[in-house]
Design a binder for these strands. Structure first.
Lengths: 345, 345
DNA sequence: TTGTAAGCGTTATCAT
DNA sequence: ATGATAACGCTTACAA
């Protein structure tokens, strides 16, 4: 059925070895022969079997991308970046998505994936169990994490402490003293560092400015839009003083705050300044002030390092800090004078 | 280095054939033997080489997903659905993303992908050239399109004509007579049916209601948020009467309208009713009225059919119309009485 | 420059 | 129930 290298060899009147060299652009084939072979191959519609060459070389020419979700901004953008680098260098991208389902994770890690299926793995900001991480390391392929640390694995991403500090300080510099925190917490309760670091940075920045953090204004969310909405509802429906600003650990949550604010009639930024992290694709349209990062570039860089390593450049994979940038838009404003003495309803 | 089936066979004191049967759960292996082999395999960390078994069986156990973008709602959701089905049935997902780069498309189709790399292909709502489609059909694997028709290929998706009709009629039933249309147009100017069908349905519904379509209110957008923003700016900055409602061919564009409206001071729905298509994850938060569809289910179904076909259920792959549903939220309202006689500024 | 042939790690057919 | 053994299609020394 499918045309194999033998068919091409026969049709071109050469050996399979020559065909192999010719189609892969290797030397030691005369130009005339190469042209003839290429013509025949094209004519017959020959394409090498990846399984066969994979078996022979021990390489699969595909790298895995492990992501908890694909329909969230950070991951979608990162996958885009990985894909870009991969396909431009002739690799395939195999997507492993846990989809939040903790149940099937175990199986995924030890069997199907990782092992013998891919040449390298890009881990996207995942909350992995210790055991899963061990499994990862047991497989001897280049690894790199993007957007969050993974024990014993080089990682590329922003300096989360610096990012959260910048966000908090922006609010403080605007005169805000009553600042709420909506921090992310991974739903699966695993060892996920990012949220913790961001929350710690917030607390440190507040204390450094001589401000106290109000435990009533310490909100949790799972990084989603809805979490942001719920947080604002809770904040505004709880009796007592209201903060004049809120720092959200992700733009998606900040956007939730903004959407819900309109419903609740709280004006932004007049009643509440909002700042997020990410520079989500909707942030600009929503006028959301944020500390931006670029997951596409981060993932692309991570993938490039992986591929370079596979190309024999030992040591190509290493941790690197990605840039971030404070982007001031309309969702944050100076604390209005009258708000400095009265507490909002 | 890596442990092979021979290692397991030797360690367990059986032949490779028996190991092969045992690890794959095939019959003709005594329970005792199977247990022993499984234990040894586990112990040695044995995992079958996909290349080797692929070579032997002619199957790759991976299906391709071809998507123009991964960071747009529809595609991200669809990929999630495909992934769900695939991994639950032991298949891998190979992502092919053209990323809008027309340049590298040619190569992608005829060589690397499709051929010998995947057992089946899920095509996500792509604008493909005739030649590309031909290439697709030349490869003899099950194919299915989701979210948009592809010549000669079963497809699953909503009835775009019915969807657009429902949206338009909703606006008309609210009393609107001056309705603008923001329709999508694929940036690559290929044979993409969806936008055309939606626009046609709009025109037909308008005419059926005895309403005329104002050419000045015929806007184009490439389905993005920004396109929606720009459309509203253009609409509001153009001298002359303004529409009282707008039908957007996608929620992303409708959200752009909503965001920009706030900036421009146009009130929604008082000044302008807005309806979209999709039920984007942000639609609910934004209070956007829309005609919803579920790309995750659509893709999951498409994938299921593909897999069933591979399992020998000939004819499993077939076209099916996915459900849609009008979801009324706050962005649309009855045309206010005073607006029925005066024309908005 | 080109050909020969020995793997690569499974699966599958046929014996036993 | 289990074991030889021949494919599977390609790569890669090693020869020529």
């Amino acid at each position: 059925m499918a045309v194999s290298i033998d068919d091409v060899a026969a049709a071109a009147g050469v050996s399979t070895a020559t065909v192999s060299r010719a189609v892969r652009g290797l030397p030691r084939v005369s130009e005339a022969t190469r042209r003839r072979i290429l013509a025949v191959a094209e004519d017959l519609g020959y394409v090498a079997s990846s399984s066969a060459s994979g078996l022979a070389t021990g390489k699969t020419s595909t790298v895995g991308v492990l992501a908890p979700y694909v329909n969230r901004w950070f991951f979608a953008a990162a996958i885009e970046g990985a894909n870009r680098e991969l396909h431009s260098r002739g690799y395939n991208l195999s997507l492993f998505n846990l989809g939040g389902q903790t149940g099937s994770r175990e199986r995924l890690f030890s069997k199907t994936m990782v092992h013998k299926q891919i040449d390298a793995l890009l881990v996207l900001c995942m909350a992995l169990t210790e055991k899963e991480i061990d499994n990862l390391h047991r497989v001897d392929i280049p690894l790199v994490a993007v957007g969050g640390p993974v024990r014993g694995c080089p990682s590329i991403g922003v300096d989360d402490y610096a990012v959260a500090t910048a966000a908090t300080n922006h609010l403080i510099s605007l005169g805000h003293r009553d600042i709420a925190l909506l921090h992310g917490e991974d739903d699966s309760a695993l060892n996920f560092e990012v949220p913790k670091v961001r929350a710690q940075a917030f607390a440190d920045a507040m204390h450094a400015a001589g401000l106290s953090v109000n435990p009533d204004w310490d909100l949790y969310g799972n990084f989603t839009l809805r979490a942001g909405q719920q947080a604002l509802v809770k904040l505004w429906h709880t009796p007592g003083p209201k903060p004049t600003a809120i720092f959200c650990a992700s733009d998606e949550m900040a956007l939730g705050i903004i959407f819900e604010a309109r419903r609740l009639g709280v004006r932004i930024p007049e009643d509440l300044s909002v700042i997020g992290i990410d520079d989500h694709e909707f942030a600009d349209a929503a006028g959301l002030t944020t500390v931006g990062q670029d997951p596409t570039s981060q993932a692309q860089l991570g993938t490039k390092m992986l591929l370079d390593e596979l190309d024999g450049h030992t040591g190509a994979v290493q941790s690197v800090l990605a840039p971030h940038e404070l982007i001031v838009r309309e969702s944050t404003a100076k604390l209005s004078p009258r708000r400095m003495f009265v507490t909002a309803s």
